[in-house]
């Protein structure tokens, strides 16, 4: 897997390292436009991360090494996942049979340590956030996998490269209804995995109702910078998955393919911004119903792919 390391892989790695923090900026800009404000600069997340890295930090007396391992694991697993998703016209830097399972499980590993770091502070708020994250992930994971099965069945591939490549275009031509259901379901999974409205409001000021933001309340300085970067990486990975599912097209021109994917992820961020501006956050108790709904959509998509 490492024997051929072409130029596109270098491009892929650079894009993965640099692009992700742009997406939260896009979302915030869209929300600002909807609210009639000028809004933060598009590059605000980059400024935040740089500023945090230069700041000092304070640690809680209760915490152990697990608390600092959380952000490290979140960034590491996010990078690993981002190297598995095909972006441009060539295959992803890491690609093998069954890499789709590694993608899901790498993100789960990041989640494991983010939640462990939250519990390490001994704060009830952070425990609450961790419990919610754990619960909603249980409902999102089957929806993701049902979609993966549908795509694998339609394309015959077991690696993300094969599944989200030209074979998927054929899948769209023969079973568009199945893939459309999976696409909707995956977009819902994107929203919950990245703690966006209607599941979680990253801008709320009430810790009692948060999910992701409350888990990282105690992180500060460089560690919090890593948390922000890790979160944007995760958003980027899910956006890229949704984009590749929606547009498995290969234009034939290498730069154009990259532009399509990057423009697509920005498009997804715009979509998230529109949803955040037009929808209210759901009550926490009704979130499971929506997630189950997403799972059922994926299930129908999978059944349509099976009988196709």
């Amino acid at each position: 897997m490492f024997e051929s390391f072409p130029f596109v892989s270098v491009v892929h790695i650079l894009v993965v390292l640099v692009a992700p923090p742009l997406l939260p900026g896009v979302i915030n800009r869209v929300k600002a436009i909807f609210a009639g404000r000028r809004g933060q600069p598009l590059l605000q997340t980059y400024y935040d991360i740089v500023k945090l890295i230069r700041k000092e930090s304070v640690l809680s007396e209760t915490t152990t090494w697990v608390f600092l391992f959380g952000p490290v694991a979140a960034v590491s697993t996010g990078l690993l996942a981002a190297l598995l998703v095909p972006l441009g016209n060539a295959s992803a830097p890491l690609s093998f049979e069954g890499d789709l399972i590694l993608l899901a499980y790498a993100l789960a590993l990041g989640r494991f340590f983010t939640m462990a770091a939250a519990l390490d502070t001994g704060s009830a708020f952070e425990g609450m956030g961790a419990a919610r994250e754990a619960t909603y992930a249980c409902l999102a994971e089957p929806a993701l996998f049902l979609g993966l099965i549908a795509i694998a069945r339609l394309t015959g591939g077991l690696s993300l490269d094969g599944m989200l490549g030209p074979a998927l275009l054929h899948g769209w031509s023969v079973a568009a209804e199945s893939l459309l259901l999976v696409l909707i379901s995956w977009f819902v999974v994107l929203l919950v995995e990245n703690c966006r409205i209607p599941f979680d409001d990253p801008n709320t000021h009430l810790e009692l109702t948060m999910i992701h933001e409350v888990m990282v309340l105690d992180h500060s300085g460089p560690a919090f910078g890593m948390v922000l970067y890790g979160a944007s990486l995760k958003l980027f990975v899910f956006s890229a998955l949704v984009v590749r599912l929606a547009f498995p097209v290969r234009t034939g021109s290498e730069p154009l393919d990259w532009i399509v994917v990057l423009a697509g992820t920005i498009g997804v961020a715009v979509g998230v911004g529109v949803i955040e501006s037009t929808l209210a956050r759901l009550r926490l108790t009704s979130i499971p119903a929506l997630l189950t709904g997403a799972g059922v959509l994926s299930l129908f998509g999978m059944i349509l792919a099976l009988v196709h």
Binding site: S57, V58, P71, V75, G122, M226
Partner: peptide
Amino acid sequence: GALFLGVRGVGRAPRSLTW
């Protein structure tokens, strides 16, 4: 990642109550 946090001296950061 661990090296980065180490270089920035996060492990030796001042300790306080959980916020």
